[in-house]
Design a protein around this nucleic acid. Structure first.
Ligand SMILES: [Mn+2]
Ligand SMILES: [Mn+2]
Ligand SMILES: [Zn+2]
Ligand SMILES: [Zn+2]
Lengths: 132, 132
DNA sequence: CAGAATTTGCAAGTCATTCGCATTTTTTGC
DNA sequence: GCAAAAAATGCGAATGACTTGCAAATTCTG
C-alpha cells in the first residue's frame, strides 16, 4: 500500500459520509495529484477497501462518491440533501428478499443495486421556514 | 409543441425501455441537432412528459436515460444487464411505506429516489453457459 | 401575414474522468 | 543494502456527456 492509497483510505475511514474526488483533493491530508486520486480509488475499490456510487445533483452535477468498507458498514444507503448537499445514512438495505424474488421471477443474476434518496433534510427545512 | 419535441416524445412513447441521448440521436425519426435533443428533453421533463435517471455502466460510462410518462407508468424501476445493456422493467416502486418511515424518522422531505438493479439477464446468462 | 417570442443549429466551452509518457517510488532477488 | 525490474505518480493532453452564446430559422400572436 503506497502513501497516496493509505492517506485516501484513512480519510475515507474517518469520514461520516461519502466523499467525492473533489472533497478528497481539497483535503490537506491528501497530498497527491488528482489523477493519482482517481487511480488509487479504483485500486482501493477493486481490492474491496472502498465502495462507491454515482450521484447526480442539479447543483453540482454528476460525481462518484466513495465510502470506506468496514466490518459493520453492510451496504448502507444514503439520503442526499439538495440544499446543503450532506448525506445521511438511512441504514442497510431493506431489499434483500425483493432482490431474490426478482432474480427468480425474471431469471436475472443481480450483482448490484443502486438506491438513494434525495430531498431536503430537517436542518435545511427549518432554516427555510424560519428565514424564508 | 415543436417538431423536435414531438418527435422525441413520440419515440419515447413507443420505446419499451429507457433511451439515452445517444439512442435518440441515432434514431432516424429524430432529425435535429444534439443540442436540441438535450434542450427538448429538459423541456419535456420540466413539463412532466418524460422522466429520467442517471445510470453508470462500466462499458458505456455515465448517461442519462429517458422514459415517457404515461397514465399507467407509475414510477417504474429497472434492471440493467451489464452484458447486453438492455433494461427490464421490474415494476413499480415497493418502497412507498419505507420512504414515509424515513421521512418521519429523520425529518426529511424526500422528493425523489433513485433505484435500479444491475447484473446479467437470463438471455445473457444462457448464452454464456452454452457457448463459454 | 407582420412582428415578437421562442427554438434551433453550430461551434466552442465546461466538467468529471482517463490516458500517455517520462520520472519517481516501491519491490524483488541477491 | 543495492541494482534491476515492476509499479505508481505527476503532468498535460484527451475524452465524452452535456451546456451555452449567438445568429438564423421556426413558431406564436393578433
Ligand atoms: Mn448535492
Ligand atoms: Mn450498460
Ligand atoms: Zn440539508
Ligand atoms: Zn443481457
Amino acid at each position: 500500500m503506497t502513501k497516496a492509497r493509505k492517506s485516501l483510505l484513512a480519510v475515507l475511514k474517518e469520514a461520516v459520509q461519502p466523499l467525492s474526488v473533489a472533497d478528497l483533493v481539497a483535503n490537506p491530508q491528501i497530498a497527491c495529484n488528482q489523477a493519482t486520486v482517481y487511480r488509487s480509488l479504483r485500486y482501493l475499490e477493486q481490492q474491496g477497501y472502498v465502495d462507491s456510487f454515482v450521484l447526480h445533483c442539479t447543483d453540482h452535477g454528476t460525481e462518484r462518491y466513495y465510502c470506506a468498507v468496514t466490518e459493520k458498514s453492510a451496504h448502507s444507503h444514503w439520503f442526499h440533501c439538495t440544499v446543503c448537499h450532506r448525506f445521511t445514512d438511512v441504514g442497510s438495505c431493506l431489499l434483500a428478499e425483493d432482490l431474490r424474488r426478482w432474480e427468480s421471477q425474471y431469471g436475472f443474476s443481480i450483482t448490484d443495486h443502486t438506491f438513494f434518496l434525495t430531498g431536503v433534510c430537517q436542518t435545511c427545512k427549518e432554516l427555510t421556514t424560519s428565514t424564508g
